[in-house]
Computed example of a mutant assay.
Amino acid sequence: MTATTSTTTLVLPVPSAAVSTPERRRTTRHYLVCEPRHFAVEYSINPWMDPSAPLDTDLALAQWRALVEVYEALGHRVSRIAPVPGLPDMVFAANSGTVVRGRVLGARFRAPQRAAEADHFRTWFQANGHPRVVMPTRVNEAEGDFAWTGDLLLAGTGFRTDPAAHAEAQEVLGVPVVSLSLVDPAYYHLDTALVVLSEATPDHRAHIAYYPEAFSAGSREALRTLYPDAILATPEDAACLGLNAVSDGHNVVVPREATHLSARLTESGYTVHPVDISELRKSGGGPKCCTLEIRA
């Protein structure tokens, strides 16, 4: 099997009711997070990272704690994995696993600086109700490049995750996969350029927001076909990692600078919760990067 087989999902039928605007309904989520106790920018593996720039670790901790407080105030379950010295990017938990319908696919990092994170998360999953974690054979940076829509797994490639990892995800998770090509190195992971706002139901397609210029021409056409009602982000939204957001179907946690996106979300029936992630952004991360969703 090759990754190209996954593109057959592009012709899936869309329910006739999908053109209506559904009520935005919150569902309780389970998130895994990692405190940025050892957070630092010690190397550069994406265009956002500058080891020579000043960094306030205490401020990063405060911003992370405020993010977690938002999740808990919204009634979501938040689990924590202990940070490990020498792994400054472990705070970006989303890169370390993909959980869909109780199945867990681990991560395999492209950058050697982050490679050790994968095994710490594997151990956590095995100790917390997921003994059958499958570790990938291909480079796969998990929810950094995989976005579950409720019926499809959107899968990014171009800078981190191998195209062949998309077919591997389909086999392990047992869900159809749509491959999307990223073309702008500033948006090196899918979760920097696209967010799932509400998942698909029998009556409505999933609702997403994305930044078109981050994708290849063919991927833009695929997204237009699948999600004609998507919210399109502006360059300003993308430049503050505004799409690195977290949604429970009604509440959307978004970087506070993404004002245009926030306005569009409000117009579309969502409740926006702006957060400050200015220090975490210095490593190319935002709310979603810090948040791995565990889907039972």
Rank of each mutant, 00 (worst) to 15 (best):
R103H: 08
A169T: 08
A263K: 08
G218T: 13
T192Y: 02
V139D: 03
H76V: 09
P212F: 02
F39M: 03
S278F: 05
G284D: 06
A107C: 12
D203F: 06
S278V: 07
R122D: 14
R101N: 15
V172D: 12
A245R: 03
E168S: 08
T157G: 09
E168K: 10
R224E: 14
A230L: 02
T137H: 14
A62R: 13
R101W: 10
A167G: 09
F159E: 02
V195P: 12
P88S: 04
H260C: 11
T5V: 15
Y31R: 07
V183L: 11
L153N: 02
L152K: 03
S219T: 13
L190D: 01
M49A: 07
L265H: 04
L32C: 06
V253C: 01
L173I: 06
E213Y: 11
A40M: 06
S247I: 00
D50N: 15
S179F: 10
A155F: 09
L180H: 01
H166N: 11
I277K: 07
I81T: 10
L173R: 08
R114Y: 06
H166V: 03
T161I: 03
E171G: 13
D151Y: 08
L55F: 03
A238V: 12
L243A: 05
P22D: 02
P287Y: 00
A169D: 07
R224C: 11
T137G: 15
L59T: 09
